[in-house]
């Protein structure tokens, strides 16, 4: 796989093992449902995938350090509900978005501090976060849907820039920025190092706790961005709207080939994982599959991909 030698920092290009799978998948669907290749359809799949994509960026960083974030769905809802509520109170779209992002980042900060300063297991802390953040959002919103949000912002979800949906451009920009941060900055290299070998990272003088805390803040922030985008797409937010996203987000990261053990993976890989899930769902919709069959196929695809990836990289561990 490494016959071509690329300059450092471009190595992730050689590791896009899921790219051929994505192309094969689209081609296979195209045989039975040709309209999957329709430009409008492709554009729709891309914009439908934007929410999961953005949340999955944050999750990728957490997983790169060997952690996990189960609270992503709750934080999506919390960010969205906060944004919608503040937009309602102040009438200001910018303040609402800002408030939503702050709540997300703060939730991530609390989780990160609990994990690193008190040495708690990420799985349990974020499970508690899932309950506590989701429950608080439900209690404060009284189960109601907050909205409609100001019409000045709802257009963003369907706006086209040079023929490309605005949410897609937002997602692509975020992917590019975060991939650059990961490959070209000290912080990014430390994230990988902490995930690859925590002990070695500490010995070499890296502030491991700081790095680990930062990835949970990033995850909270990106979950909240996803939540705000979802709110814009749906004209309103409620406490349960994000709850089904956990499977999609972690599924996308895993499908992309980022290792749950940490230290191996990239943001671009996650993008491929998101697209595989997006086209899979779209293709099955076009074929008219029942929702329960779609669920079984999606699970089987994630499982198959994880098995292949684990077997391919067995010697590395």
């Amino acid at each position: 796989m490494k016959r071509v030698s690329l300059p450092t920092g471009m190595k992730w290009l050689t590791e896009l093992t899921m790219l051929p799978v994505l192309l094969l998948l689209i081609l296979a669907f195209a045989v039975f449902a040709p309209n999957i290749l329709n430009p409008v359809n492709i554009s729709n799949v891309l914009s439908q995938s934007a929410v999961v994509a953005i949340a999955a960026i944050g999750a990728t960083f957490v997983i790169l350090t060997g952690g996990i974030d189960l609270s992503v769905g709750s934080t999506i809802s919390a960010g969205g509900v906060t944004a919608a509520a503040v937009m309602g109170w102040t009438g200001s779209v910018a303040l609402g978005i800002l408030a939503g992002l702050v709540v997300g980042a703060l939730a991530g900060l609390v989780i990160g501090v609990l994990i690193t300063r008190l040495n708690l297991v990420p799985f349990v802390v974020t499970l508690a976060g899932l309950f506590a953040i989701g429950g608080t959002t439900l209690l404060l919103s009284n189960g109601a849907t907050i909205g409609p949000i100001p019409p000045s912002i709802t257009g963003f979800g369907i706006a086209l820039v040079a023929g490309i949906p605005a949410p897609v451009i937002l997602a692509v920009v975020l992917f590019a920025v975060m991939q650059l941060l990961l490959t070209w900055t000290t912080w990014g290299r430390r994230v990988i190092l902490v995930g690859a070998n925590r002990e070695a990272a500490r010995v070499s003088g890296i502030n491991v706790r700081g790095v680990e805390t930062s990835v949970y803040v990033v995850a909270g922030l990106f979950s909240a961005i996803a939540g705000v985008l979802m709110t814009i797409n749906l004209y309103g937010a409620n406490a349960t709207m994000g709850s089904s996203q956990l499977l999609n987000v972690i599924g996308a990261v895993v499908l992309g080939g980022t290792s749950l053990f940490g230290g191996r993976g990239s943001v671009v890989r996650t993008a491929i994982g998101v697209l595989v899930l997006g086209f899979l769902a779209n293709g099955m919709n076009l074929l008219g599959l029942e929702s329960y069959d779609q669920q079984a196929v999606t699970g089987a695809v994630i499982l198959a991909a994880a098995c292949i990836d684990a077997i391919l990289h067995r010697r590395r561990r």
Binding site: A296, T298, G299, L303
Partner: peptide
Amino acid sequence: LASLQVFRGI
């Protein structure tokens, strides 16, 4: 996580 979806789908 994957088999959750498979089992519920079946």
